[in-house]
Amino acid sequence: MGCVSSKRRKQEPGYEEPTVLAAETPFTVSEVEALHELFKKLSNAIIADGLIHREEFQLALFRNRNRRNLFADRIFDLFDVKRNGVIEFGEFVRSLGVFHPNAPVADKIAFAFRLYDLRQTGFIEREELKEMVLALLHESDLALSEDVVETIVDKTFGEADTQGDGKIDPEEWKEFVSKHPSLIKNMTLPYLKDITLAFPSFVVRSEVDESD
């Protein structure tokens, strides 16, 4: 049984062996197998091709395949390491590894930086921060005047941009996060510690040992 299933899995595009992924991430082999159960559900929700398309990602996050969101888009883009428009299983596991409670804090800080570096210039620029604040206001239906938004962005930049060159570099970001650790709170998903409990169906169907 394990052999047949293992062959089938290997035919999935982007499938990588759980032992390899476990060695490169904070996950155990069992947890990677459980993540594969989740991945199968997400990646076959709209198009049954074993790859997570942007609409499937949106559907999983918002229960709505058409709901675009700046931050969800950025996270999708960061997960899509190959930049081919889909998230493969290996990309999914490696990216989620950063969100594991045991992942290095430095990795979480770096991931958050890349998330905010909208135009991927290597810096978080003032205009990017303003764009994100405006996107959030739009998302939340909160109304703030242009002046208030400018003040919020200025104050934040005033503290984070210690060199005063109009952009936040990775070192400044690291320093800023150390003063405001809540900034990376969303970079930890407690669910990942209990992933095998969330997907218990895997436990009775595990085949790592037998196929090896």
């Binding site: 989740l38 918002f62 989620l96 604040v133 919020i152 104050k155 934040t156 900034l183 998903l189």
Partner: peptide, 25 residues
Amino acid sequence: KFFNAFEFISSMSSGFDLSSLFENK
């Protein structure tokens, strides 16, 4: 209290909260 734009974004954006990936699956 200092109004931190990044805290505002990270605490309020639904697109930033990946926990929904694990819920109701």
